[in-house]
Structure formats: structure tokens, C-alpha cells
Write a protein that binds this DNA or RNA. Structure first.
Lengths: 103, 103
DNA sequence: CTAAGACATGCGTGTCTGCGCATATCTTTA
DNA sequence: TAAAGATATGCGCAGACACGCATGTCTTAG
């Protein structure tokens, strides 16, 4: 395993870690319909403001969301629709397992 | 947020946690071309046998891989091609960020 | 039934992570 | 400039996680 490849897996895992928390998934889901300010996100998700900021910072550090300041508000949005597609695929995998095969 | 939805996010995050480790990604990748025994996986990936078993158990507990015993060997395979698709999507997201936009 | 190979599991430890709380920074309005 | 709103950051702790090592279990060969 080359050094470069090793680092790639490290990076890939790091990105996946971004999804490895329920609150972060809730936040990402709250951004499905477009960008939202932190306050809006807190209202929608019922997550504490400081905690939401921490999770958003993690998502941002992994390139999963981007932010834009407008006045005193900061608006976040999901970086790429591929992110939602990937999450949907995993939901589909989960669904396949729950759905019992026909007898 | 309903109780059910809360649990769904918890479960979804749990599945994502399956990908949140470089060695597990390496193992999943080693299973791209089909099933492999634990010994084969250890050879390919250079992961210690006990450690590989531990990671495989985690992947299995999340429904990401399945196993089948044949004699003294146990063969693992990825549960669904959707899993590789999802991982590829994330790699694409990563690639987009590294690729600099044209000036 | 005994030995050896293949795989799984339990334990101890060092590290990471999520959270609440307090507080700091930035922006607008008075 | 002071105050208030919006967001970010630092700290401490409790729980989770990865790993190495030793050992246990299952299967086939002799």
C-alpha cells in the first residue's frame, strides 16, 4: 500500500466521519432545501446553538458544507448534491435490510 | 423530531460510522472484486488478523458486509453495490475540492 | 482424538469525540 | 460608542473507539 493511497483512505475516512453523528446528519438534512442560517438550523433541529456551531465547523472542515456571511447571519449549505445522493444510497442499503424478502 | 425519526438518524449515523476508519475502507475496497477470506484480506491489506476480524465484525454488525463459511475459511463480501456507489460519490466530492476551478 | 490452521473474542490502554457551559468575536442598531 | 443579536471558540469531562496481545473456538488432516 503506497503512502499516497494510505493518505487517501485516511482522508476518505475523515470525510465519512463527518456523517458519523446523528446530529450532523440532522443538520445536513435540514439543509436539503437550500441554505439556512445557524439560528434557523437550531430552530429546525432543536440543537443547542454552540453545539450546532461545533458540528457545522466539523462538516465545514471536511468540505461537506460551505458558509456565507450576510450581515450578522451566517448561511450554510451542502457543498454538493452528491453528498445527499451518497446518504440516500446508504438509507437504501438500510431499507433493503429491514425489508423482509418475500417468502 | 419524532422518536422514530430520531432513531433513524441514529441508525444512519451508525452505518456511516462503519466507513469512518481507514482500515475498514481498505477492507471494503479489497472486497470490490468479489468475496475474500479473512486470510486473503490480511495478505492484501497488510492488516493484522485479529484486527481485521474486529473491523469485519463491525462492518458485519452494520450490515455492510456478509460472511459465509466454507470449511475452515470464512468468506466476506460487500452487502450491496450501493455501498461502493456511495463511497465513490464521496470520493468524487473530495476530488471536486482538490481540483482547482478554471480561472 | 490430537495437532494445526483459520478465525473470533476478551482485555487493557491510549486516543478521540460529543456535549454543556462559559465566554469571545463579529455585526448592526440606537 | 454601547448594547444586543448571531455565531464561534475554549475547556473539562464522560463515553466511545482502535489497537496489540493473548487466548478461545471451530474445522479439517492425520
Amino acid at each position: 500500500m503506497s503512502e499516497v493511497r494510505e493518505e487517501l483512505y485516511q482522508l476518505h475516512a475523515s470525510v465519512c466521519k463527518g456523517f458519523a453523528d446523528p446530529k450532523r446528519l440532522i443538520l445536513i438534512n435540514a439543509l436539503r432545501d437550500g441554505e439556512r442560517s445557524v439560528t434557523e438550523l437550531c430552530e429546525i433541529t432543536q440543537i443547542q446553538q454552540a453545539n450546532a456551531s461545533q458540528h457545522l465547523a466539523i462538516l465545514k472542515s471536511k468540505g461537506l458544507v460551505t458558509s456565507r456571511r450576510e450581515g450578522q447571519r451566517v448561511y450554510y449549505k451542502v457543498t454538493s448534491s452528491k453528498i445527499n445522493e451518497a446518504l440516500d444510497l446508504l438509507l437504501a442499503v438500510m431499507a433493503e435490510q429491514i425489508t423482509l424478502p418475500a417468502i
